[in-house]
């Protein structure tokens, strides 16, 4: 039965435009991964739409052989929402950066998540405004020095995951631009999830914020400072695979298995599908310092989507008192005849 399904390769999703990001930019890896993820999903290019706002990452739709729309700053979520409601058969991706999605577009972002519109939001987080040449973004750490904060910022950043949970999100995944396998796995899961899926990808801006994620992502420390969560598996990490996450009262704790009396039995098993977001939120908030930064699919819970809700309501109302034409509807109301 699978034979009849046309088979797509990554090349089928590539447009003929030459890619214009800076050499070494993390966006190249994310783009290639997205092409592969789409091929894995097998949704035909003509049934796929990629919608972006403004910023370096938002150039991405031009490099896709799908339907694409490079829109205006911050509004991609609202435009993608209208698109999906109008044409629910299509798979819709939204590409945003941390400035586009969380500053100027913050309102649309939280409402898209709250509404649970079935779109896949890829949030490229490089903690900087690249296209305008290096201003701090809403994810830059307090004290961050940039052209618009020469003495360091005096404000705290958003943590994207915290916003997603605050908006009652049902899917949150995270990856790193150079973690190609993880990125692909999370993108595919995000697309298969029905509802608003947010995938945060830690992306390196080689020109204006080079190495911003290095404390976590550098090869020498990555294994100890990140943990790849997989549904149904033990929460294990570390270069030797001997570290694990255990419960510590209401909080989490990283331990070395075999030390201080901790055994493998104490290590938690990841359940991405449990409706309660209590543990998911704790996992997502781990920052790579005392606890490892979580990558992979952190939360993936099914809930009714906005677009399905709209379709179902139209169907239900029409079944009960639907009219075929406007005229029928008006004639069913209060009228009088003049002969």
């Amino acid at each position: 039965m699978e034979q009849d399904k046309p088979c797509y390769t990554a090349a089928n999703y590539k447009s003929d435009q030459s890619v214009r990001w800076c050499p070494g930019c993390g966006d190249h890896a994310i783009l290639n991964t997205l092409h592969k993820a789409m091929a894995t999903l097998g949704v035909p290019p003509h049934m796929t739409a990629v919608i972006s706002g403004i910023g370096c990452s938002s150039r991405l739709p031009y490099y896709m052989n799908t339907y694409g729309f490079h829109t205006i700053h911050g509004r991609a979520a609202a435009i993608a929402t209208g698109f999906k409601v109008a044409n629910p058969e299509m798979t819709v991706w939204q590409i945003s950066g941390d400035g586009d999605g969380l500053a100027i577009g913050g309102n649309h972002f939280i409402h898209a998540v709250r509404r649970n519109i079935d779109i896949n939001i890829l949030l490229f987080n490089n903690k900087i405004y690249g296209l305008t040449k290096g201003q701090y973004s809403p994810t830059s750490a307090r004290g961050f020095v940039s052209k618009s904060s020469p003495y360091g910022t005096t404000e705290d950043p958003f943590i994207p995951a915290e916003l997603v949970f605050g908006a009652r999100g049902n899917f949150f995944g995270r990856s790193i631009d150079v973690e190609l396998q993880t990125s692909q796995e999370v993108m595919v899961a995000a697309a298969r999830h029905k509802g608003a899926s947010v995938v945060e990808i830690l992306q390196n801006c080689v020109i204006f914020n080079n190495g911003i994620h290095n404390a976590i992502t550098d090869r020498s420390v990555r294994a100890d400072r990140t943990i790849h969560l997989r549904h149904g598996e033990k929460m294990i990490f570390g270069a030797n695979g001997d570290k694990g996450l255990v419960r510590d009262g209401f909080l989490l704790k990283a331990v070395t298995i075999g030390q201080d009396g901790y055994t493998m039995d104490d290590v938690l098993v990841h359940d991405a599908h449990t409706p309660s977001n209590f543990l998911h939120q704790q996992l997502a908030m781990m920052d790579g310092e005392t606890l490892p930064l979580a990558i992979g699919i952190i939360r993936d819970v099914e809930a009714i989507t906005y677009n399905d809700g709209v379709e179902a309501q139209v169907k239900e109302v029409r079944a009960k008192k639907g009219f075929n034409t406007l005229r029928d509807m008006i004639l069913a109301g209060e009228t009088w005849e003049v002969k």
């Binding site: 739409a49 993608a80 929402t81 209208g82 698109f83 999906k84 649309h108």
Partner: peptide, 19 residues
Amino acid sequence: CQMEDEIAGVCSAIGASFA
């Protein structure tokens, strides 16, 4: 669709138009 603000009103319509 009652959107979250006026901007989302026009933008959702633009998305629907493209669709």
